[in-house]
């Protein structure tokens, strides 16, 4: 009897130890062998999304996203139109410049594909995963709604928010990595004169639009505090033009071949600070064009013909394509039910 009361059942301890050892192995498994875990993540998303959606709605009701500065709907519409037109203008201008460069360099006509077909989809933001180091948004739209890897999210029509990574598209929900997450790394941006409050019209500048013959490139990285900063790279000038000095208020646009071409020339943010380092190089701080928490984003989803192609080197597109997306899944201007209302 004394033996029986003194014996300890060690089975639970053994099973716990065994499970912990398996978890240690899984935790240290290299990324190239961990692709299969995404499926389990998708299942977890599927299970957890039903409770997140009502909670996100309650939270957004209790703490609404920051209201836009312009309340007048007509002015807001005009501003949005202007932003879209500028977005298209810079893409076309880049196309023209690239075309000129190619013609000059190669002395032969090259077929510039130029078409930029993408559709737009409004997706509600139902969750934000953050543990202090990683920032991921969870969108209420997935493969069922047409979301694919590489889709780019924008806010206020043209402000780049981030992109949907590989493995981030579930059946009904998808993940979005914002450009302010440190894992995104460096982003190449271009600043044109004449754009933004701090800009001055260049020699050939047009009213409200910056001249595209003059630009300054910068490579900025997320700081982890919601903004981006980095050194100013080379400027592009034509003979006779004065070098552009960056100033707070100027706007930066994406010009990075590592990003999809349907994201090129989107607004990355506004320059808030420029500092000259002891070595003479300028460093800029850019405040993104969006602010968390977001209630929804507009996804730019490439058409099927464009999905498998490599990112564009030129990052160009046509005005018509950009202004008239091919068969939008849901008009971006009427976000009645985020996520396309298909859940």
């Amino acid at each position: 009897m004394a033996m029986r009361s003194g014996s300890v059942n060690t089975a639970p301890r053994r099973w716990l130890m065994l499970t912990c050892i398996v978890l240690v192995v899984l935790a240290l498994l290299p990324a190239r062998w961990s692709g299969w875990t995404v499926w389990f993540g998708g299942v977890a998303d599927f299970v957890i999304a039903p409770v997140q959606w009502p909670m996100a709605k309650v939270v957004s009701w209790l703490s609404p996203a920051r209201a836009p500065t312009t309340r007048d709907p007509v002015t807001a519409t005009l501003e949005r139109e202007l932003a879209l037109t500028k977005d298209a203008y810079y893409r076309v201008a880049r196309e023209r410049d690239e075309f000129e460069r190619q013609v000059t360099a190669l002395q032969r006509g090259l077929a510039i594909t130029g078409s930029l077909p993408f559709k737009q989809l409004v997706a509600g933001v139902i969750g934000t995963h953050t543990d202090g180091s990683v920032l991921l948004l969870r969108l209420r739209a997935g493969a069922r709604d047409g979301v694919v890897d590489g889709a780019v999210a924008v806010s206020d029509s043209v402000s780049l928010v981030g992109r949907v990574p590989r493995g981030g598209v579930g059946d009904r929900v998808s993940r979005l990595i914002p450009i302010t997450d440190r894992s995104v790394g460096a982003i190449n941006v271009l600043v044109f004169p004449g754009e933004g409050a701090g800009g001055t019209s260049g020699a050939s500048g047009t009213s409200g639009f910056g001249t595209t013959s003059l630009s300054v490139a910068a490579q900025v990285s997320p700081t982890g505090r919601g903004d981006l900063s980095g050194p100013v790279e080379a400027g592009r000038y034509k003979p006779g033009e004065e070098p552009l000095r960056l100033a707070p208020g100027m706007v930066a646009r994406l010009d990075d071949p590592r990003w999809p071409r349907w994201a090129q020339m989107l607004l990355v943010g506004t320059i808030v600070r420029v500092e000259t380092q002891p070595n003479g190089r300028d460093v800029v701080w850019i405040k993104p064009g969006f602010e968390l928490p977001l209630t929804d984003v507009v996804l730019r989803i490439p058409d099927e013909s464009d999905r498998d192609g490599p990112p564009s080197e030129d990052g160009v597109g046509s005005l018509q394509d950009a202004r008239q997306p091919a068969k939008p899944a849901k008009p971006a201007t009427t976000p009645a039910t985020p996520g396309g209302g298909r859940r």
Partner: peptide, 16 residues
Amino acid sequence: AMRPIDGGTAVINIIG
């Protein structure tokens, strides 16, 4: 909780 890899172009779940 997914974790970005390869410069934010992909995500994986790290179990453990």
